[in-house]
Design a protein around this nucleic acid. Structure first.
Lengths: 86, 86, 86, 86
DNA sequence: CACTGGAAAATGCCGC
DNA sequence: GCGGCATTTTCCAGTG
């Protein structure tokens, strides 16, 4: 393969990534700004983050947490024959 | 302040943040994809990341850190990575 | 300060850290071994990790989760007259 | 297999792992402490970490990576960090 | 053997 | 200004 082609490809890759990272950084800045603004309006950013985190994990937990709970109960020796939640 | 207003504000904040985080996640996925594609074309992702990181810090700072690193290495009796004969 | 002293100090620091990291690595290896052994006895390592993680977060959640719940209720518009904060 | 035996085994596994993780956390704390102390004595923790990382990878490998990095940097028109005159 | 997921490390921010 | 915390990024092991 011609070296020049590889070089062009490398430049392309690097530039694309850098471009995307810029966009990402911009979004991160926006998020930070929203938190700051919220803080200015009297909301506690830390708690805000927690709430948002909770909202994110809640849906995925629905099916997974249940299975995990069973295991956890096993570890404690509390194995009811049938899990209550249907 | 009316409680209702605070509530509306909170909802707005949370929704805006969640929206932004979605966008951010999408960009992250894009970046990952570019790395994967580059890897498929024979580029080493690890080195790629290193280059991109280096490009982010301005050269003077880079030199500065390097100088300090050299000092530490000397103090420890380490040879400061033989420069690849320019 | 005499350069020689700084050099000696640097060596000391580096050696102490490296020593500690060795110990840490040894412990990590032990942990891995326990997981491997458990797997050999029919336990699923992945689930095992999850249980252990759960056991770790549980205690801290006790007091914190409660406060969080309040906030979460706020987010849903269920605000009691007075905010708890001092 | 008797359930009771499995249960006992599980408890044993979990307890052993938790014990080891405690020890590991203690060591991590020690390491942090050494870094903090070193910083108090005028050493740059960031560079310190870099040196220690470098000492971990054997020199041949280090050179190899460096060579590849140089190739990439050249392809991108970056000057490969002027070596600090020996 | 590549990929996904999780653990560990490092960087940056926030509060004191 | 510094220490601590949270987030982010990187690395590695397990898995298909």
């Amino acid at each position: 393969m011609p070296t020049g082609a590889a070089q062009a490809q490398l430049r392309s890759v690097v530039e694309r990534i850098e471009r995307l990272e810029e966009e990402k950084a911009a979004i991160s800045a926006d998020i930070k700004e929203v938190y700051a603004e919220a803080k200015g309006n009297g909301f506690d950013p830390k708690i805000l983050r927690k709430v948002i985190r909770l909202r994110k994990v809640d849906p995925s937990e629905r099916d997974e947490e249940q299975a995990l709970l069973d295991v956890y109960m096993h570890a404690l020796g509390m194995v009811p024959t049938e899990p209550a939640g249907s």
